[in-house]
């Protein structure tokens, strides 16, 4: 919830950096691109112009303010659509995240359908899985607003594009081309590293208790021993 790396992680990637080194075996926050991205973020929140409200509860930034009509945009994911439809009495739309020095960046959040290898009912499970991923069901799921369909069949894509508001759903599909997949680490525990070490230090940037360099250094010092 409030420990949400999705927001600041986006700045890291659009700045040209990464949460990790290339083979995901060490912390990447101190790399120049990461610092550029984090600094850009810090300036938005804390700089003289202070264009962004401070991060709120639930890790969202500007979300409550958007509903209250006091900020113009906020970053979040497709899954917010149903809640936004319920919350907002005004018209709203979706765009891709702005380009940074590192090019376009966004997160690819995904949920996998899996069958347990030891299941007693492999045949039935396969039937369910086929049904779940059929264009028809994917279209129904897409129409609910939460998910982007996992089946490229025209029926599913159309249902997704027509699930309104927002009036235009293509930014979600465009983002898939350059998205960073949220994937487990090869050599460490995501929760221990990102939740346990990165997040508390990034919090200090927002609170004005540490500079970007200090926070990134502290995060990497704490995290690097946790990559096995």
């Amino acid at each position: 919830m409030s420990d949400w790396w999705g927001l600041w992680g986006w700045f890291v990637y659009s700045g040209g950096g990464s949460l990790f080194n290339a083979d995901r075996t060490a912390c990447g926050l101190t790399e120049p691109g990461s610092i550029t991205g984090l600094q850009f973020m810090a300036d938005l929140f804390l700089g003289p112009d202070r264009v962004a409200p401070p991060p709120g509860l639930e890790g969202g930034v500007g979300e409550t303010e958007f509903h209250a009509g006091t900020v113009g945009m906020f970053p979040n994911g497709r899954w917010m659509t149903p809640s936004d439809r319920a919350n907002d009495a005004f018209d709203w739309a979706v765009v891709e995240m702005p380009k940074g020095p590192g090019g376009n960046a966004t997160w690819l959040f995904w949920g996998a359908y899996v069958i347990n290898a030891q299941t007693e009912y492999p045949q039935q499970a396969w039937t369910v899985l086929k049904a779940l991923t059929s264009p028809d069901v994917q279209a129904q799921i897409a129409a609910l607003g939460t998910n982007i369909p996992s089946n490229k069949a025209q029926a599913a894509v159309d249902a997704f594009l027509n699930s309104k508001p927002p009036a235009d759903n293509t930014p979600f599909i465009n983002g898939a081309a350059y998205a960073q997949a949220e994937i487990p680490l090869f050599t460490g525990n995501w929760n221990d590293i990102v939740g346990g070490q990165y997040q508390p230090n990034i919090d200090k940037i927002f609170a004005g208790l540490a500079t970007v360099q200090e926070a990134a250094q502290a995060a990497c010092d704490g995290a690097n021993p946790l990559f096995k």
């Binding site: 919830m1 509860l57 639930e58 969202g60 979300e63 917010m80 809640s83 319920a86 919350n87």
Partner: peptide, 8 residues
């Protein structure tokens, strides 16, 4: 509810 509807 807090997880799914925290903005409501």
């Amino acid at each position: 509810i807090q997880g799914g509807y925290h903005a409501s």
